[in-house]
Design a binder for these strands. Structure first.
Lengths: 144, 144
DNA sequence: ATAATAGAAGATAAAAAAGTCTTTTATTAA
DNA sequence: TTAATAAAAGACTTTTTTATCTTCTATTAT
């Protein structure tokens, strides 16, 4: 569904959102451990998201990544769009470039429905909304 | 959503199904042209599907790929499983290996719903059912 | 000011996916 | 039986994705 890069991005953002609630900044090392991702790789991903304004950062001692109020309202759809682009939301299921209502692929309409459902789900899910279940250990972000 | 390999596979299978209705066999070259895919690449894919019994083939003059009655009832889900595996249908949206009901990722339940919808849609879509719309030029398989 | 900290940036490497090329094998029509 | 045809198989190349390593720059506490 998503690229690995995007999966890491979503998990990192959810983790940062949780830590930001209490005004903390988190370093790359802590994030990498918490979501079980390659340190340098997640660093690049967050730098990218930072340039795009989906996460904030500060260098130096006591520095790290954090979310301004606005960023914790960032949706999973925003992250997917920033990393994987909008192919998942608008592209043809069979990879046809010119697939559209006028020249549809055989599964065009069925696909449109599930794509829209996915989009709605990701648009409604804000990174900040998962903090409580995470704190209660009802949900997890590590891969194994 | 699917790998390119899988997209080609689905398009090729739908095309073969249509031609098989009239008892014809189609060669790789014709398939490649019809769905606008790299000839040698689609050959490999179909050899794979042939080994797995989702499509039939015959070598030599008048040979080519075709569907026995059974194969035209093959669903898109069968093709996806054969090529991409069942990760799309059973895997975690955030790429967590041990994500399950007991240890769910934050979006586990929302994801399960859309995954199930996708599966249902692909399971209900049989490669043989698109022939008529294709013949009437109501739908298309070429990428540009 | 200075040393320590931590992200930014760019080069490089490894792995996976996508695509190409060549040779072999099976089939059939003549 | 032979020549032509078409898939099978395997080696190889390219591109993309994923991951790592090193150097640079900004920040802060002392």
């Amino acid at each position: 569904m998503f690229s690995k890069t995007c999966e890491y991005a979503i998990r990192a953002m959810i983790f940062i959102a949780q830590r930001s609630k209490t005004g903390n900044r988190v370093g790359i090392k802590e994030i990498a451990k918490a979501i079980d991702a390659p340190e340098h790789f997640i660093a690049k991903i967050l730098q990218d998201l930072s340039r795009k304004g989906l996460v904030q950062s500060l260098k130096g001692p006591t520095g790290g990544f954090y979310h301004e109020d606005e960023s914790s309202q960032c949706s999973l759809a925003d992250i997917v769009k920033a990393i994987d682009g909008d192919k998942l939301f608008t592209g043809c299921g069979l990879g046809l470039r010119n697939c559209n209502e006028k020249k549809p692929c055989p599964i065009h309409y069925e696909f449109k429905k599930v794509r829209d459902d996915i989009y709605t789900m990701l648009e409604e899910a804000k990174v900040g909304e998962f903090s409580l279940q995470l704190e209660k250990n009802l949900t997890f972000l590590r891969r194994k």
